[in-house]
Each structure stands twice: as C-alpha cells, then as structure tokens.
C-alpha cells in the first residue's frame, strides 16, 4: 500500500538523519538533553506535516528547516542574543583584521583532544547565526548555497558570515589557550 511505503520511507529517513540532526542540535544548544528533545520534536513535526498531506522534495533540508525553527523559538526566549549579535557583528571587523582564514600559527603545543573538547564547548557559545553556519557547513555538510536556501539568506551573506564565524571561533579558542 502506498501509505505503508510512505511510512517505511519516513522511517528510513528518520534512521538516516536522526544522528546528524542530534549532532546539529547539540552544537547549537551545547546541551545533550536539549538536543534530544529538539530531535524528537523535529521528527514529530515532520510526521505531522507528512500526515497532513504535505509534499517534501528535499527531506534533509526540510528536517533542518524544522530544527532551525525550533532552535530559533528557543533563542527568542533568550532575548540577550539580539544584543550579542549586534556587538559581535561590530567586533568581527576587528577580528578579521587580526587574523585571516581558519589556519593560525601557535607557538605552544596543542593537545588535540583538548582542542576538540574546546571546540565542542565554544561552538555553541557563538552568536546563533555564526553557530548555525559553522554547524551547517562543516558538521552537517551543507554547501553555502544549500544553507542559503534553508535560512532564506543569499549565498554571499552566508559566505561572509562563515568567514566571520570562523574568525570569531578562532579568537575564542585562542583566548581559551
């Protein structure tokens, strides 16, 4: 039956993407528990949409859009982020002058595991838009164009934001070290 095919397909999509969605939510929120809640809610909403007769062309992008909206709802509860965004935007120009790209030199020996842990800690602390683009680009594997489609921004805006986000993260990690 067609409905059985749809259910089967949905379950396949669920099992294919639930880990990556969880990972995305984790790096956006910094909390494992919240990430689990958000992942669960994403698939429930997706099923509601399918059940309501909605058509989905690109499942992966669709799921990330739902997740993104859920995270935005959460950020809206934290009004401070809007203030952070403004100040971070201004500071990013200074950061860009101090460094270039994602590669930087350090004189001290870096413990690899320690740096990985620091990335896990610091990434969720970035301003939401910066955290989102880094997560979607380098963790979820979306291209700048795909990110632009999901967020509704232009590809140029995404590219600039990526550069600033990487610079900001590098600065934060430098302070940590």
């Amino acid at each position: 039956m067609k409905e059985k095919d749809t259910e089967g397909a949905f379950l396949l999509v669920f099992r294919e993407h639930h880990d990556s969605l969880f990972r995305h939510a984790f790096f956006r929120t910094g909390s494992r528990e919240r990430a689990l809640d958000l992942t669960q809610d994403t698939f429930i909403k997706a099923w509601d949409y399918v059940r309501g007769g909605g058509e989905i062309k690109q499942f992966k992008a669709f799921l990330y859009k739902i997740m993104r909206n859920l995270i935005i709802d959460e950020y809206r509860r934290k009004k401070t982020q809007s203030l952070d965004d403004m100040s971070e935007e201004k500071r990013s120009f200074v950061d860009a002058e101090l460094a270039e790209g994602s590669v930087w030199e350090t004189e001290t020996h870096i413990d690899e595991q320690d740096l990985i842990l620091k990335v896990q800690e610091q990434l969720p602390k970035l301003p939401p838009q910066y955290c989102a683009v880094i997560t979607m680009r380098f963790i979820d594997g979306f291209s700048p164009k795909e990110i632009a489609d999901i967020t509704g921004d232009t590809e140029n805006v995404i590219s600039v934001r990526l550069h600033r986000a990487i610079t900001k993260l590098r600065t934060m990690l430098s302070y940590e070290n």
Binding site: V103, I116, V119, R170
Partner: peptide, 23 residues
C-alpha cells in the same frame, strides 16, 4: 604549529553522536 580549525570542528563533530540507549 599550524592548526586548521575546520579540521578540528569536523573531529569534534565525529565524536558527538547518539548513544545506543538514546537511539
């Protein structure tokens, strides 16, 4: 030493995954 941040972001991602119980 040179550090490629993107490489470490990807490594950080690789070590973050659902546990069996959570799945």
């Amino acid at each position: 030493m040179k550090i490629n941040l993107i490489e470490y972001i990807k490594k950080a991602a690789e070590s973050t995954t659902l546990s069996t119980v959570e799945q």
